[in-house]
């Protein structure tokens, strides 16, 4: 895992430009809710996006475009992606809380998983809760993985990731994160490809966990 505890500039640019997958957007948005300096970076990049938008050659619209817009002007707005608070977590996109409420299932003693979205491709986004002091079985990844800590903290090698921190790892990292003893840890994870367990505990549990 990277040790910066923040998304890389490249990830922030992808977020601001709208080219991340939806599950990754949720993970980065959760971190941004807790991190003023990354938020300021994103807004600077968005300001660049605004300038680019202004400079684009205009595309021809249908002749009745404006009158159609004016006719619909009082129609109420449809629901959109919004952040929502829950007392013991950092704020997260509403879809994430929905998942925690409706699709939570115990995967192993002390561990629950709640799928948030699936796709595109083999990207899976899910909530993972691990009990205090427990470790996630030693594993590596087939692809990249973005994690934001919503509650509690975990230790991975020399680094501690606490509430609001962002962690990124890719296929060549083998690790076994351990949750600190002071409380449960809930993470929002967007991972490409399945985990590849490296020890027998993981191999036994993986089929049940399904991540």
């Amino acid at each position: 895992m990277t040790s910066s505890h923040h998304p890389s500039t490249a990830v922030l640019v992808d977020y601001a430009a709208g080219t991340l997958a939806i599950g990754q957007v949720f993970v980065v948005a959760a971190h941004l809710g807790a991190c003023p300096s990354c938020r300021a970076d994103v807004e600077r990049i968005e300001a660049v996006g605004g300038v680019f938008l202004n400079d684009l050659p205009p595309e021809k619209l249908a002749p009745d475009a404006l009158s159609r817009a004016l006719a619909q002007i009082e129609r109420p707005a449809p629901a959109s992606t919004v952040m929502q608070a829950r007392a013991d977590w950092i704020t997260v996109p509403r879809d994430v809380l929905e998942a925690a409420r409706r699709r939570r299932r115990w995967a192993a003693p002390g561990v629950w998983v709640a799928p948030v979205t699936k796709g595109p491709g083999d990207l899976r986004t899910y909530l993972l809760r691990v009990a205090p002091g427990m470790s996630v079985p030693r594993h590596t990844h087939r692809g990249s993985e973005m994690v934001c800590v919503l509650k509690g903290a975990f230790v991975d090698g020399a680094h501690t990731y606490a509430r609001g921190d962002f962690a990124y790892s890719d296929g060549d990292v083998e690790h076994c994160p351990v949750v600190t003893r002071d409380g449960e840890c809930v993470c929002l994870v967007a991972a490409q490809g399945a985990l590849i367990p490296r020890d027998w505990v993981g191999r036994v549990f993986q089929p049940f966990v399904g991540i």
Partner: peptide, 22 residues
């Protein structure tokens, strides 16, 4: 990706925005 049921959440705000000072 997945249909989201419409509901009326009590606490709600748009995707995070930066603090003014920055």
């Amino acid at each position: 990706n997945r249909p989201i049921p419409a509901e009326d959440p009590s606490v709600e705000r748009p995707l995070p925005a930066a603090p003014e000072a920055l």
